[in-house]
Each structure stands twice: as structure tokens, then as C-alpha cells.
């Protein structure tokens, strides 16, 4: 029912693509990260709660939306969106045609982060899953524990008169951090890329503490010992000269492994991910009751081999997804200034 083509995942019966990476007529989008949502398609279909962020990233396009679970039909193919818990408005896509059901997970995490919606297991015959952290060494501790650690670290920096810089992906992790840092409202600054997303979310009615833009116009004493959230390494930004002495910490699932933490060279790493860990991936696959699984971006070969050994038919698929846990902004891009 779905084919893996050079444009991306394609449903022939309904003549639409899911998260295509080359321009197509009709694109169904799971979420707004740049490896899944690209410009150049004639039409976009997405979950209603994902629209504001998608529009802030892709600009004016021809959008159509559907509420959670609400069916949309294309040539008799039934499409519906279900929360994937990855970022605000992120969805799994359920596709049904002549009694056969596929679910394309996009990216997902199984722990409810309180802002992105709760991952909903959807029964299907064929499940297309990501595998970003598809190795058993990746096992997350509860979000509340990590948040406590982050808040403790931030408070310690502020107490010592230093700014606390948190480096995190602009769409997804940054919103979680802003949410977690509510007790510090009034001292939170962010990179422009994050502010743009905050504006879109605010306009859409989301409740977040105030996040400010950093500039020379703000009195120096307010800029010192502040919190600064940025997707790019602070060392590469002009902001590093505005916030007084600082310490930085990277927030990413990759920080779970010491070698990655040390390679990044930041002062500290917090293990915070918007993807499912190993147990999460295994549980999600099981909950779909799927007889066949296609494993995409991440540890495809390992996770599919494991599934095959546990009696679930699995295949690995090469896609152009993945990589968004890396910094999405390169230091030499001039638009990064602050």
C-alpha cells in the first residue's frame, strides 16, 4: 500500500506522500522538523495542532488540517492523525485502504512531556518506526528527575553570578526547557530561532513563561546571571559577550554516552530527548500489534534484527530522515547572531 520511493514514502492508491524529501503534489506531514517538513510541495496536510509551528517554519503554503483522529479521505484512502509525543503538534499518520492499516510514526517519544501530547499506540498491520536511539544502552530516566537536575544546576550557576546557557534543539527541546524553567520566569532569554517558535505558539494559545530577546539595549545587570537557551553553541554567538560569565550545558539524548558528552566539550550534558528510548521503541512496536515493521532513521539494522529475533517481521529502510538531534543551525550562518 505504501512504497518507498526516491521522493519518500508514497501511497499510490491515495496519490500522496508522507514527509517527502523531494517536491510532490500532495504531502502529508508528521511534524515540523526540517528533515520531515520541506518546502516545495503543492499541498500540505497536517494535524491541526501542528499547523502553527509548521507555518512558522514553511511560511505561506496551501495547508489543510485535521483534528486528532478525524478522518480525511483521498481516493477512498482514509488518513488520520494521532499524537506521537515528539514535539508540539507532532503526529503519527494512520492510513487505511480496503481493510489494510499502516501507521507511519514519524518521530515519537513514549513518555508524556506535558506539552507535546501523549503518544497514542495505534493498532495496525504495518508499522513504520524510527530508531534514533535503537540501542539498549539508551534508557531515559523520568523527565521529572532530569528537570530537577537542570533546575538545580541552573540555580547553582545563577547563585554564583554566572549565566546558565542551555543548548538544545530549537523546536521541541527548547519548549520543554522553557516549560520546566517556569520558576525562573523573568530571567529567561533565547536565541532568535527559538523566539520565532515561541511567538507562533503563543499566537496559537499555548501558555509559556515569558522569553526575552537578548540585546545590548537591555541593562547589563539584567543580562548577567541569566538563562540563555540556544540551538547553536554559545561560543559561536555574539550573545556570549552579552551575558557575563557563563556555563553551558547541552541537552540531548546523545549526552547519555560519555564519549559524546566529552566530544561536545560543553561544561555539562543533560540527557533529555524527544525520541523514544530502547524500551520505548520496543513497547511502541508491540502495542501496535503490527505483523510487519519497517525501521527507518537511526539504528535500523540493529533494531530490525532484534525485532526479527523476537518474532516480529522487520525490514530496514533508508530514508532521508534523521539528524535533527544534531544542532540545526551552523555556526557560520549569519542569521545565527543572537
Amino acid at each position: 500500500m505504501i512504497r518507498f520511493t526516491e521522493h519518500g514514502l508514497y501511497c499510490e492508491a491515495g496519490d500522496f506522500h508522507i514527509d517527502p524529501w523531494r517536491p510532490v503534489r500532495s504531502a502529508v506531514i508528521t511534524h515540523a522538523h526540517s528533515d520531515h517538513a520541506r518546502t516545495g510541495h503543492s499541498g500540505y496536510l497536517c494535524a491541526a495542532s501542528g499547523l502553527s509551528v509548521l507555518r512558522s517554519r514553511l511560511g505561506v503554503q496551501s495547508y489543510e488540517t485535521a483534528d486528532w483522529g478525524e478522518p480525511v479521505f483521498r481516493n477512498g484512502v482514509r488518513i488520520s492523525f494521532h499524537p506521537s509525543g515528539h514535539i508540539i503538534g507532532s503526529a503519527q499518520v494512520r492510513i487505511e485502504y480496503r481493510g489494510e492499516v499502516w501507521v507511519i510514526s514519524g518521530d515519537y517519544k513514549t513518555e508524556n512531556d506535558g506539552i507535546s501530547g501523549c503518544f497514542e499506540p495505534v493498532k495496525c498491520h504495518t508499522f513504520v518506526t524510527e530508531s534514533t536511539f535503537g540501542l539498549p544502552v539508551y534508557r531515559w530516566r523520568p523527565q521529572s528527575v532530569v528537570y530537577d537536575e537542570i533546575r538545580t544546576w541552573v540555580a547553582a550557576q545563577l547563585d554564583q553570578g554566572r549565566s546558565a546557557v542551555l543548548q538544545a534543539y530549537s523546536l521541541g527541546k527548547s519548549q520543554r526547557l522553557i516549560d520546566a524553567l517556569r520558576p525562573f520566569a523573568g530571567r529567561i532569554f533565547a536565541h532568535g530561532a527559538i523566539l520565532q517558535i515561541q511567538e507562533a505558539l503563543k499566537a496559537d494559545g499555548h501558555d509559556f513563561p515569558e522569553v526575552m530577546r537578548l540585546s545590548e539595549d537591555i541593562p547589563a545587570e539584567r543580562r548577567k546571571a541569566c538563562i540563555f537557551i540556544t540551538p547553536a553553541p554559545i561560543e559561536t554567538l555574539r550573545a556570549s559577550r552579552l551575558i557575563g560569565p557563563w556555563r553551558s550545558a547541552r541537552c540531548s539524548g546523545w549526552m547519555h554516552v560519555r564519549g559524546n558528552r566529552r566530544r561536545e566539550g560543553g561544561d555539562k550534558g543533560f540527557v533529555l530527548s524527544d525520541h523514544a528510548d530502547w524500551e520505548g521503541l520496543c513497547a511502541a512496536v508491540k502495542a501496535t500489534k503490527a505483523q510487519r515493521v519497517f525501521v527507518t532513521h537511526g539504528f535500523q539494522s540493529i533494531f530490525s534484527r532484534y525485532l526479527n529475533e523476537t518474532g516480529i517481521e522487520a525490514h530496514e529502510v533508508q530514508t532521508s530522515f534523521g539528524g535533527e538531534e544534531e544542532t540545526d543551525i551552523t555556526p557560520d550562518n549569519p542569521s545565527n547572531q543572537i
Partner: peptide
Amino acid sequence: LFEESYHHVGD
């Protein structure tokens, strides 16, 4: 899977 993990972590 232990081997793959070791290979990935390197320690």
C-alpha cells in the same frame, strides 16, 4: 546486542 552496544559506546 551487547557487542553492538559496546561498539557504539566504546568503553
